[in-house]
Amino acid sequence: MLGLGGLLLVWFAWPVMKSAWQAQQADSAATALRLNYRLSLDALLNAIDRLDRAVDLDPTAGRYFQRSELLAGAALSPNFAPTAQQRTEWLKRAEDDLRAGLGDDPARGIQWLRLSSVRLALGGPSQASVAPLLMSIDTAPMLLPLWPVRLRLVLDNWQALTTAQRETVALYVARTWQLSPNHEWFADAIRTPVDELFVRYFVRNEAGAQEELTRLLTERRKKKS
């Protein structure tokens, strides 16, 4: 019986082990995209193929999230110039993977944030992008490393936010200013005069915030000139 039990264990574990091996072959490509390193198209397509196999063997939330990161990274990376059709295909596949993964593991703030980014890239500012953005905040509200991307998404989606959503987001941004030891990323999120108005509004009640934003923005403008 022990021999049979061991055989059954290997039988059931084999797809998981093989899936992990396939996914590992895509790690270098995912890392290159994450760090904005150069990556050849052949290496990217090979990594996508590896993760396709990994998902087929072990369709868990983690595998879906891995593939979504690779697909979204490839679609949005400045190092690639895919056709509009290819970019849309990668983004739609990433969206499908994120929906599948979050259906099984919804308490993942970074994945909700990625879904918001993907939907913004696919359809522009909309409640389709806002909803996962707010879920990201709900599931990981004070995870500071996520807030630079969140703030950009808030600004990009501002026109699609309802009044109640705007008030909620404004409170979180102000709280994040209070908790953040470094406010450089607030200035980095500002790309237009309208962005600046909103960010200044978010932190209007924070002591010294307006002066600090002015200093940070002035430093950036001097570097560009």
Rank of each mutant, 00 (worst) to 15 (best):
L51Y: 00
S19R: 01
F65D: 08
M135D: 15
T83N: 08
T218E: 13
A43G: 06
P59K: 12
Q66S: 10
L71H: 11
Q159S: 11
L71V: 11
T88H: 04
G103C: 06
L76E: 12
E69A: 07
A54H: 07
L41G: 04
R220G: 03
T60V: 11
T168M: 03
T176R: 10
A61W: 10
A131W: 04
V203H: 04
E219P: 01
E212F: 05
A121Y: 01
S129A: 15
H183C: 00
A174S: 15
R166C: 00
G101I: 07
G208I: 09
A207C: 00
G5H: 03
A174F: 09
L39N: 07
S136R: 13
W90E: 00
A164P: 01
M1F: 10
R53C: 00
E196R: 09
T83E: 08
P148N: 03
L113G: 02
A140K: 11
Q159N: 09
D49W: 04
R166V: 03
Q210R: 12
A72Y: 00
V16T: 11
W21C: 00
M135I: 03
L9Y: 14
G5N: 04
L134S: 03
R166T: 02
S68L: 10
Y201D: 10
Q210D: 15
G109A: 14
D188L: 09
R67W: 10
Q86F: 02
L197D: 08
A170G: 08
A160G: 05
A107M: 11
L91R: 03
L151T: 05
L41F: 02
A164L: 10
P148D: 06
K18I: 04
Q159L: 10
P125Q: 07
